[in-house]
């Protein structure tokens, strides 16, 4: 028996399906279909390669479904050992409370080395997406905070859950995305990547962002979550939630810091989220899908891409590329 086998009986935290932790008969789980298996193999390969070649890797953990898949794959990659690097969460102070609770449950359940960083400057200045605007808030509380945390930890490689299908500027992103010492990304000067041979040579101060999920699509993520019974924050599942409609976005309205604008009606209805982030910037969708199967069924007929709920992308075409050049993930 591998010594670390104790981890294997850890009980997933959220039973979004009829998952029964008692029936832990591993052989009973049907094998992954070849498509998902190929994606899983590729991701595990990348995890192991980065862990072996870099001195101080870290995994960006943003609590959403992609991070949940990333975490699961990292556990698989290093089994029977533990994940040999810390997980980093950039807390802007405006995350959904359900996300924070879920994060802490995961860290506890899987014995994770979790590092949480909040930009002290932004926190002391009380930066808020409402008073300072979404773009400034994101610059300070996400992009700047991330740079601070990476510098503090002297990390030379950071795993992220980005996928190439998410947004046009990501289609040319490498699996190892090279960054200068000041975390800049130069889209015109990326290293060529051939076969599955990754160039992990960097100088002191330089780093890479590594994206094991590059070749996954949104549907793959959901199908994998289903096949592997991966725990997810409850925000992904519809339940009655209070919200307002603002600028075409359904904004969650249960936080004490929420203030209705003149003429705005707080409504209550069945709501879920396709992506998770800062609640003032993350729109929900009306849905009755409260189980994983229902979410997937809804997704397969959905015609709206998942980033639609995000205010960042709509600011301007090409906005994501701009953010990335500045060091946003």
């Amino acid at each position: 028996m591998p010594p670390d086998a104790a981890t294997r009986t850890d009980k997933p935290m959220q039973s979004h399906t009829e998952f029964d932790p008692q029936s832990k008969d591993k052989a009973a789980k049907p094998p992954l279909d070849p498509h998902l298996k190929a994606l899983e193999n590729e991701a595990i390969h990348i995890f192991r390669e980065v862990a072996a070649e870099f001195e101080r890797p870290v995994m960006l953990y943003s609590i959403g479904k992609d991070s949940s898949v990333l975490l699961h794959l990292a556990r698989k990659a290093f089994y029977p050992g533990k994940i040999p690097f810390p997980l980093l969460h950039i807390d802007t102070g405006w995350k959904f409370p359900e996300m924070i609770a879920f994060r802490d449950e995961m860290a506890e359940a899987f014995g994770l080395n979790l590092v949480v960083h909040t930009n002290p400057r932004g926190a002391s200045e009380g930066i808020s997406p409402f008073t300072h605007g979404s773009s400034y808030h994101t610059d300070v509380m996400k992009t700047e905070a991330l740079r601070q945390a990476l510098d503090l930890g002297q990390y030379d490689a950071a795993f992220g859950g980005a996928r190439r299908d998410e947004e046009a500027s990501r289609a040319k992103e490498r699996i190892y995305s090279f960054r200068t010492p000041d975390h800049k990304w130069d889209p015109r000067n990326q290293r060529p990547e051939l076969w599955n041979i990754y160039n992990g040579m960097v100088r002191r101060g330089e780093s890479v962002r590594a994206f094991p999920l590059s070749n996954w699509t949104e549907v793959d993520i959901w199908r994998y979550i289903q096949a592997e019974n991966i725990p997810l924050p409850p925000l992904y599942f519809a339940k009655p939630r209070k919200f307002v409609e603002r600028d075409g976005m359904l904004m969650w309205a249960e936080d004490p810091r929420f203030e209705a604008l003149p003429g705005e009606q707080v409504q209550e209805g069945m709501l879920r989220f396709r992506t998770l982030g800062c609640w003032p910037l993350t729109g929900g969708i009306r849905s009755t899908a409260s189980t994983l199967d229902e979410v997937i069924a809804e997704l397969e007929i959905a015609t709206v891409s998942e980033r639609q709920g995000r205010a960042i992308d709509r600011d301007q075409a090409g906005s994501m590329e701009k953010k990335k050049r500045e060091g946003y993930f």
């Binding site: 190439r164 046009a168 500027s169 040319k172 990326q190 090409g318």
Partner: peptide, 24 residues
């Protein structure tokens, strides 16, 4: 326009790199 992801390229009207697309 759907395909030419990067601003730098869009400005020059050429694609200069390898982009990956997904469909099923």
């Amino acid at each position: 326009l759907l395909l030419d992801g990067l601003q730098a390229e869009r400005e020059q009207g050429i694609t200069i790199d390898v982009a990956y697309r997904y469909f099923s």
